[in-house]
Nucleic acid binder design. Structure first.
Lengths: 205, 205
DNA sequence: GTCTATACTTCGATAGAC
DNA sequence: GTCTATCGAAGTATAGAC
């Protein structure tokens, strides 16, 4: 049962050339947006012939999916490693403040709206990422003695995600009104919570 | 001094046909993303010849800019009208929760990253919009007796903007983990603040 | 103001030689 | 695994008739 359709041949998934193409596509995506990711431009950026893109990927959608998957997997591993160690709110905040991650998100959210294969991939990843972060923030909030009744972990997580995303998104466009004050506020808030963490274990006198 | 360059002629800005083209472009943008906004498709959606797009707009960038400007202006007027009346936190929250607005933002942020004319337009609008909202939320927070030292208005605004954007963005992709709980939390929080507003003017007994 | 006709570019994708 | 050659479709934009 090897091949019902007369599909054209496709290169090995572990090829070094293939990886170069994915690198080039990712670079283009980050620098110029998804509209710039065409087989011709990817080929040029990788220093290869454009036709190789079609040799390694059935379609451009497949290439996009691969770019996303590779980065998502790497990111998830990183977050889970951090989660394994001691987690502070500050760590989580910094994790979400990486502007490269935001640009990446923007592009793929925009893409996912029209390409259903990509949307499925994005949704699947988002759920896993959220779950990992939720475990982390739950632990961090407990350590800081923030009562879950007062601020549920999911809410805290979505607030944090939203805030950091808005900040880096606006910065990407050169909008910075109120940012400094907000970042300072968040820093101070975390400082306060971490101090509470260290000084009150055992309960107040 | 009328025309140093041999520029081709451009239709009147108040033309009805022109407005139809802008409508069609906006619809396409919202439904299928900016990549779907091409002269051919805009023409088809408007029931007109694609060449008319080039008669009314020097370039596709000009069309995009016009789509953005029209919507931005309308939105700004709406917000400023609301600002003029009595403003509650709830009103502001609902204003930002419109999912259409979020999709619109996503597309234009993605566009703005590569097209500098659009970026300038977006940045200019964002500053004005932020300022209007800031006046509103400052008043609303004062009415609810939230001390500015505890939660600065700008911070509250960015938190609110970020949260509502993350929520509608994820919903657009079919991700809803934690949303219900978060929306309920926000609703309850506002309920509490509004009650405080009405019951404590004059100070607690 | 709207149309036809058209120039030129770039796109995704495939076939088949090497 | 990489190349040349090539298709057909779609993109922006312009010129000029009506």
């Amino acid at each position: 049962m090897a091949g019902t359709s007369p599909a054209r041949r496709i290169g090995a998934p572990d090829s070094k050339t293939r990886a170069r193409l994915v690198d080039a596509a990712e670079q283009l995506l980050l620098d110029e947006g998804y509209a710039a990711v065409t087989s011709r431009r990817v080929g040029a950026k990788a220093g290869l012939k454009p036709q190789l893109v079609h040799y390694y990927f059935q379609s451009m959608d497949d290439l996009f999916t691969e770019v996303f998957r590779r980065r998502a997997e790497e990111n998830l591993t990183r977050v889970e490693r951090i989660l394994a160690g001691g987690v502070t709110l500050r760590t989580l905040w910094e994790l979400n403040s990486d502007p490269r991650g935001t640009i990446f998100s923007i592009e793929f959210v925009a893409l996912a709206k029209h390409h259903k294969a990509i949307r499925a991939e994005v949704a699947r990843y988002a759920e896993r990422y959220r779950a990992a972060q939720l475990r982390a923030i739950t632990a961090a909030l407990e350590a800081s003695r923030v009562p879950g009744g007062q601020l549920p972990p999911v809410v805290a997580l979505l607030l944090m995600t939203g805030l950091s995303q808005v900040l880096s998104l606006e910065e990407a466009l050169g909008i910075e009104a109120g940012h400094e004050e907000t970042v300072a506020f968040v820093a101070e808030l975390m400082e306060r919570l971490e101090t509470a963490d260290r000084s009150t274990d055992g309960g107040p006198p």
